[in-house]
Simulated assay, not measured.
Amino acid sequence: GGKKNSECDLCAILCFCHSGPCRPNPCHNGGVCELGETYRGDTFVGYLCRCPLGFDGVHCQHKCSGPLGMEGGIISNQQVTASSTHRSLFGLQKWLPYFARLNKKGLVNAWSAAEGDRYPWIQVILIFAIFKMFVITVFVYAILLQIFTGNTDNNSPSANSFSPPIEAQYIRIYPQVCRKHCTLRMELLGCELTGCSEPMGMKTGHIQNYQITASSVFQTLNMDMFSWEPSKARLDKQGKVNAWTSAHNDQSQWLQVDFQITTKITGIITQGAKDFGHVQFVGSYKVAFSNDGEKWLMYQDEKQQKDKIFQGNFDNETHRKNALDPPIYARFIRILPWSWYGRITMRVELLGCPEEQ
């Protein structure tokens, strides 16, 4: 009868499931295929993948258990709030909400609720998109009427899984049992619901050295052993020489990645570095992209109809994430530093997924 939800289609699937859409199983990473009246756009596919904990996407192809940025700094101070703040030493020490970052060091290195706060909470706002959260590492808290086990000491992390996962832009943690003060450091683990915000391999090395090039390379003391090559521009890289630094400080410099194939890029994470104690970072940058490495297009600010300038870093260590919305579809991407502190210096991760996703 011309119905979109065709009873005949569904009957055919149910009656011939041995050769239907679940045979072979289209769900990856242990996903369970379920038959049903399911559409992808206007196409009737007749199945749905139930993904195991830690995976997401149409075919459970995306990992969904990466840190969302409490420890690294992608989640900014302004995104973390709390019901109260503990003050000590006559009010000079403030245990602020944004100190609640996993593995934070220092004399004041966590969030702590005020003594008189009978119902303390700490909240994180995830501003880029709706996120799916699977795991959270915290002190002791209760949420959704379920009590989760927290820590037994002041230093060892404790992990808890949400099954089913939470899909939300705001998450609030309510400590229930505390020793002395309700105090915590934490990380949120999960992914964006778009399913296309996975690290592309700068940090892990999946993007190989030959795929990363640059306009110029600086050498400390003009020595080869202190050469800040583009292949070192990997997020969180350690060592004395642990980033790319350009030989010149001007707006003609660039760092380039060749993905080898057309790729969907949805975000960029940047980080600065230190050159023998000297803090260096890129404060803002532009982005260009190409499919052949010769013709380049500048990423545009759609509202202002001009080249978009992205906010970069404020120090040498904190991660800074910028979303590309709309995303870039290209083989090559270039980051063009626009302002900097010290020297043009970058460590980078690129976020995205293969073009077809």
Rank of each mutant, 00 (worst) to 15 (best):
V348D: 03
G73P: 00
L53P: 03
G57S: 05
S284V: 11
S231Q: 10
A159T: 08
S339L: 14
W340E: 07
T183L: 13
I333H: 01
W111G: 10
D153E: 11
V124N: 09
C196S: 01
W111F: 12
L96D: 06
K303E: 06
T345N: 07
T220W: 14
W244F: 07
E229W: 12
G239P: 10
Q260T: 11
F139C: 12
R50N: 02
V217K: 08
L89E: 09
A82F: 02
M202E: 05
Q280H: 15
I75T: 04
N5G: 13
G267Q: 02
M70Y: 02
W254T: 09
L144Q: 08
F281W: 10
V58M: 05
H319S: 11
N155C: 08
A243P: 05
N155L: 15
N242S: 12
H18S: 05
S76D: 08
T245S: 11
C15G: 13
E198R: 07
T270Q: 04
A273Y: 01
L107T: 14
V241H: 08
I261G: 07
K240I: 13
F99E: 06
R347D: 02
G66I: 07
H206F: 04
D56Y: 02
L107N: 14
V138N: 07
N5L: 14
F310G: 08
A142I: 15
Q169P: 01
Q208R: 15
R320F: 14
G352W: 03
Q238D: 11
S290K: 01
Q176M: 05
A288E: 15
F131I: 01
P24E: 11
P165I: 02
P230S: 12
Q271V: 08
Q61E: 03
F131N: 12
M200C: 01
G277K: 02
N322A: 06
S227D: 08
R87D: 02
P157C: 13
A142E: 12
N242Q: 13
Q93L: 11
K232R: 06
I333R: 00
Q79I: 01
K104C: 09
